[in-house]
């Protein structure tokens, strides 16, 4: 049951649209900075298993307004296992 957090950089001027699109995915929680705070979103994903996680990543990569996604935090249920390198 992975929980990951990312910094999501929107394409120029597309922050509001990106926020809306990410919010429409049920696995995603989006935190936006305060008004005038800068062009970046915090994205937290919570998926039931590895497969769902990978599927979600494919969908995220398909979002055009997303310029860059940087992983910050990874958590997984299984004992001691680190999040795999290819992520």
């Amino acid at each position: 049951m992975p929980i990951l957090s990312y910094l999501a950089y929107p394409a120029a001027g597309r922050q509001a649209e990106l926020k809306h699109q990410l919010n429409s995915l049920p696995e995603c929680t989006v935190h936006a900075p305060e008004a005038g705070g800068g062009e970046v979103l915090v994205l937290v994903t919570d998926t039931p298993d590895e497969k769902a996680e990978k599927d979600l990543r494919v969908r995220l990569e398909g979002i055009e307004d997303l310029q860059c996604l940087a992983l910050v935090f990874g958590h997984r249920e299984t004992d001691g296992a680190a999040v795999e390198g290819e992520l």
Partner: peptide, 28 residues
């Protein structure tokens, strides 16, 4: 516990954002 971990994940990313993007503030 999941809620808590999600919170931690969000905070980690927010702190990181604060370092990377000047002036960014998260009220959340």
């Amino acid at each position: 516990r999941r809620t808590m971990i999600r919170g931690m994940a969000a905070q980690a990313a927010m702190l990181m954002a604060a370092r990377l993007v000047p002036g960014v503030r998260f009220s959340a």
